[in-house]
Nucleic acid binder design. Structure first.
Length: 656
RNA sequence: AGGACCAUAGCUCAGUUGGUUAGAGCGCUACCUUGACAUGGUAGAGGUCCCCAGUUCGAAUCUGGGUGGUCCUACCA
């Protein structure tokens, strides 16, 4: 290896020549043309060209494109230069680190990232830990004038260790350690190491490391290597730094571009939480650019993207959004609209709590276990809560924060708010209702809310705390903070499939009536009569049990059981085998109803065709599992029976 | 060049071992200010699951090939 430049990148008098092992090579003549000695390399290049031209040796001078490395701070062009550098034997360090992941002492979530780790580690090269930077930990190595090397914590220690004379001149290595070399010590270095402190014994190994996939080789792999090298278990085996590495996706901007300062597309989380005006946002993005030329472009883009700046969304909304978007994919394209949607969700929870407080504060909520009568709706929401808890806990265990967030969203909005709060109104507003019934509903309102607050707390810490402070006493709970409360545990004995089926029936009837209203343009304010007709045993019971709920939520003028064939002309919807009839007199638009029925019949016809085709295929009936075949047969029977009823209905209306 | 990942509604994304009428949020359409909530409610429209071939009774899901996109490949972190 030949080096022709001095430390200042000027041309040497004579080239240095080394063997590959770093020893000096004396076989090769290192002499250089004296004309160039001491010139800067730029001047030397020009001089060489003109000398060549003078000698008639130049055929052509041609421009070509190349990428020129420049120093980050100085901006100067960086030239190749041979210097002494320190290396760590990475292969030896990597071996136990690979094994720790292979045998599961350390697990990556999602698992696919283990491949990334292995491919890096199995192909690892010696790690150059010298850096020529202006910052970092200085390499703890000293040299004397003869080139001897002494390594130690500091100069005093080095002198003592090697019995060096006090007047022997020592020079510390100019280079600094690779940042990752220092930060690889992080898990134990922060806990008092090299002293074996109580903290170190208590908290090492740590549990979960959360990071981005681009950090796996930079830091994660190196933490594992260094920790296993320095830290040992009591039995002397290498200790791992952490047990699980949870790898998040990388958040990009809405176009899928990586956020970067020079692109001016960075969105500061704090600005989404607190909001920021356009002027401040522009200043933030363009005020301190490395390349001021970009300011105009970034400014325009920002102005277009956020004409009014960014609205305040709050911490909880941001947290919940991040959880909901933490899917298994590698990239997360940020979407302000989703943040907005989850802010609305926070608002929804807040308003639901207001409703609950309005109806429970200062009222008898059965805190002291007074007797209660639980309605079907009460028992249903309690049952569903157990299910929601199961789901959330299961998904959290698997690091599927997106699915956990979705389960919470679904329960709070689509079950608790949309149905349960509505179903609580008929009971609370009914002057005839017993004290036990009202107490039961109030108790359920507060207890379910209290539990779901604890369930949601990790994802929406502030709102849940705020509401919990007021709800907890009503639910008979005491404590300074929701943060100190136990996480909910589902109780399977509170789940009741029969209750769920009854509520599904109830929802079906209500939706059926709303459907008729929607399609027939009947005002939501107008009360309408409804008839139910069915041969199934449960239907009559369910109607009798739920008369109050139905009348209230479907806005009924009357609700009657109809037997026999000559039903009045009605708009019809099916709930299972049961017909929901809305008599047409004075209400229904005949053409609209015919159109609606045709649409439904067409859908059924397609469905029947599909199912028949499948079931007539002998290969399917012969090879598919019996329960799958049976399921398809049942679907066909249902579709056919629906088709028969609706065809009859259509004929009746047509004849009107 | 090598390797990895991704492709599902207008947009951002779910879809767990093959069997669903393929889902959510936002956006869109119509109606509704009813006493928790218009940051809302009700009802709806919207998909050739990138393309081709294969395995299978059956494919968004499994296999092969193709197309398009993103990222990584060691001295900024």
């Amino acid at each position: 290896m030949i080096n022709v430049m001095t430390q200042d990148a000027n041309i040497r008098d004579e080239a240095e020549v080394f063997n590959a092992d770093g020893t000096e090579n004396t076989d090769i003549d290192g002499s250089l043309p004296s004309a160039y000695a001491g010139l800067t390399r730029e001047a030397a290049r020009k001089q060489i060209v003109s000398d060549m031209e003078a000698a008639g040796l130049v055929q052509q001078v041609e421009d070509h494109v190349l990428s020129v490395p420049r120093g980050d701070r100085s901006g100067l062009i960086i030239e190749p230069m041979l210097t002494d550098q320190w290396f760590a034997d990475a292969k030896t360090l990597a071996k136990p680190a690979i094994e720790a992941v292979e045998d599961g002492r350390i697990q990556f979530v999602p698992k696919q990232y283990e491949n990334m780790y292995f491919s890096w580690m199995r192909d690892i090269q010696d790690w150059c830990i010298s850096r020529q930077l202006w910052w970092g930990h200085r390499i703890p190595a000293w040299y004397d004038a003869d080139g001897n090397i002494y390594v130690g914590r500091n100069e005093d220690e080095v002198r003592q260790k090697h019995n060096l004379a006090a007047d022997l001149e020592l020079k510390q290595d100019d280079d600094v350690l690779d940042t990752w070399f220092s930060s690889a010590l992080w898990t134990f270095g922060t806990l008092g190491w090299p002293e074996i402190t109580e903290r170190l014994k208590t908290f090492h190994p740590t549990d979960v490391l959360v990071t981005g996939f681009d950090i796996i080789f930079f830091w994660v792999a190196r933490m594992i290597m260094m920790t296993m090298h320095f830290m040992k278990n009591e039995d002397g085996t290498p200790q791992v730094p952490f047990k699980t590495v949870y790898v998040t996706g990388l958040i990009r901007d809405e176009h899928g571009d990586k956020m970067s300062k020079s692109k001016g597309n960075v969105i500061d989380p704090l600005d989404m939480i607190d909001g920021i005006g356009l002027d401040d946002l522009l200043e933030k993005r363009t005020g301190n650019l490395m390349q001021p030329k970009l300011a105009e472009k970034i400014g325009k883009r920002t102005q277009k993207e956020f004409p009014e700046g960014i609205a305040a969304h709050g911490t909880d909304a941001l947290r919940f959004t991040l959880a909901a978007m933490a899917t298994t994919g590698r990239d997360i394209n940020w979407d302000m609209k989703r943040l907005e949607g989850y802010r609305n969700f926070c608002n929804k929870l807040w308003n639901a709590a207001r409703y609950v407080l309005m109806n429970t504060e200062g009222e008898d909520c059965g805190v002291n276990d007074e007797p209660v009568a639980l309605s079907l709706a009460d028992r249903w929401i309690i049952s569903e809560l157990q299910h929601c808890e199961q789901e959330v806990i299961r998904h959290l265990d698997q690091y599927r924060f997106d699915l956990a967030a979705y389960a919470l969203y679904e329960f709070i909005w689509n079950e608790y708010c949309d149905w349960y709060l509505e179903l609580s109104k008929p009971v609370l507003n009914d002057e005839e209702a017993s004290a036990e019934a009202k107490r039961g509903t109030r108790r359920t309102l507060v207890r379910v809310l209290e539990a779901v607050l604890r369930l949601a707390h990790p994802m929406m810490p502030f709102i849940t705390e705020e509401i919990w402070q007021r709800i907890a006493p009503l639910a008979g709970k005491a404590g300074d903070s929701i943060m100190l409360q136990p996480y909910p545990q589902p109780d399977a004995s509170k789940q009741d499939a029969g209750v769920t089926a009854d509520i599904e029936w109830l929802k079906g009837v209500i939706v059926a009536v709303r459907n008729v209203r929607g399609e027939m343009n009947i005002s939501p304010a107008k009360k309408i009569p409804v008839l139910l007709r069915s041969k199934a045993g449960d239907d009559k019971r369910r109607m009798d049990d739920n008369r109050q709920f139905l009348s209230s939520l479907a806005k009924l003028e009357s609700l009657d059981w109809f037997e026999g064939d000559n039903a009045p002309m009605s708009a019809t919807q099916l709930v299972g085998e049961m017909e929901v009839l809305v008599p047409m007199a004075g209400l229904i638009d005949k053409d609209a109803e015919l159109k609606r029925l045709d649409k439904e019949l067409e859908r059924l016809q397609k469905e029947i065709g599909r199912l028949e085709g499948k079931l007539n295929n002998e290969k399917f009936t012969a090879k598919a599992p019996a329960d799958v075949v049976e399921k398809e047969q049942e679907k066909l029977r249902d579709a056919q029976s629906s088709q028969a009823r609706l065809s009859q209905q259509r004929a009746d209306i047509e004849a009107m």
